[in-house]
Design a protein around this nucleic acid. Sequence first.
DNA 1: CAGTGTAAAACGAACGCTCGTTCTTGACAC
DNA 2: GTGTCAAGAACGAGCGTTCGTTTTACACTG
Lengths: 197, 197
Amino acid sequence: MPRVSEDHLIARREQILVAARTCFLRNGLHNTTMQDLIAEAGLSVGAVYRYFKSKNEIINAIAESVAGGITALLQEVSTREPAPPLVEALSEVFDAINVQVGENGNFPLAVQVWGEATLDPAIREIVRHRYQGMREAYVTLARRAVERGELAPDTDVEAAASVLFGLIPGFALQRLFLGHPDKDTYLRGVRALLNPG
Amino acid sequence: MPRVSEDHLIARREQILVAARTCFLRNGLHNTTMQDLIAEAGLSVGAVYRYFKSKNEIINAIAESVAGGITALLQEVSTREPAPPLVEALSEVFDAINVQVGENGNFPLAVQVWGEATLDPAIREIVRHRYQGMREAYVTLARRAVERGELAPDTDVEAAASVLFGLIPGFALQRLFLGHPDKDTYLRGVRALLNPG
DNA sequence: CAGTGTAAAACGAACGCTCGTTCTTGACAC
DNA sequence: GTGTCAAGAACGAGCGTTCGTTTTACACTG
C-alpha cells in the first residue's frame, strides 16, 4: 500500500510496539528475537525495519512508554482539587500498581527496563527522566500535606517525598516476588508507622 | 593440575564466579559471552565447563550470592542485643545499601537478576527465597519495636514489616537512578513521617 | 630415587545454529 | 510511468557448547 495516510504510519508503529510489548513480557528483552516480534505483529521483516531502524530503537520506545500510565495517574492525583488525604492518595496509587504487577501488567517489563538501564546510557536517561517525574508528583503531594497540616510544618518536604515515593517500588516488588501483602495490609502498615506508640 | 586438593576446586569455582560478577556488572547477563567471562577468569573454555555445565548455571550461582551480604547484615541487626532503635537499625542498613549501589556494588547486578526472575522460574525462586529471608528480618525488627514500646502495642507487625522492608528497594532505586537522596535525608523523611503534624 | 602408568584437569579449535540486519524484487496507488 | 511500501530470501557475525588432545601431579615399582 504505497502513499499511505499519516494515520496509517502511526498505526503501524503502534502495532509493532504492541507486539513488542507482548513478546518482551513473555520472553524478555533479550530472548525475544526480531522474528518473534515480527510474527507477533503479523508483518514482514522489511515492514518492521521501515518503522524502526533497529531492535534497540524498539526497546527504547518501549522504555519510554512503560511507565506512562502510572506517571499520568501520579500527576493527576498530586494536583487534584481538593487535595485528597495522604493515605487516600497512596491508596489510589497502590491500586494502579496492583494492576501493573498483575496479569498482563507493565511492571515486570519495567523491571527488565531497569536492568537494561544499569548498562545502556540512553535507557538509563529515559528511566531517570521518568523516575524524576514521578518523584516530583510526590513532592507536590508532600508539600500540600504540610500546607493543610497533615504533616508537621517543619517537615523536610523533599525528604518526605523521597520516602513516600520509595514506598511504591517497595510495594510493587513485594507483590511481584512474594505475592503479598495486599494493598490494605500495606496501607495499615503505613498508618501504623504514621502513628507510632 | 590433576589430583588436586578440594580447596583448589573451591578456589577455581570462586575464581570463575568473581570473573562472572565482573563481566555481568560491566556488560549485563545477556551481553556477556562465555568468551568474555572465560578471558576475565584467565582460564580456558574447557576449564570453565568443568565447573559449571552451562552459562545458565553460572547465572544461577550469581543470583544466589548477589544479596548475601545484605541478608547477613539484616539478620545480625534484627537479632542484636540489645535491640537498636528502629531508625538506628534502618540507618545501618541504608549505609550498606549505599555501598552496594555505588562503584562496584552488587545492586545493579541485583536489578538485572530481578529482571531475569520475571522470566525464569528457577531464578524467580531464588529471588523469592532471598526476599522472604530479608522480609523476615524486618518482621523481627518490627516485633521487637512493638515489644519495647517504640511502635503502638496494637501494631500489625507483618504490615509494618512490609512497609519498613519496602523502604529499602525504594531507597536503593532512587540512589541508583537519581543519585539522591543521601541516607541522612532519607532518614529525616522517615522520622518526619513517624512524627506527623 | 629414577622411571613409568594413570587419571584428573585444562586446553582450544571447531561445530551447528540463530541472530539482527540488508537488499533485491515486485505490487499497487496515483 | 513513477514513487512508495512491503515482502522474505539471504548473509555474515557471533553465540554457547562439545570433544579430541595435551599437560600435569601423583602413586607405584624396583
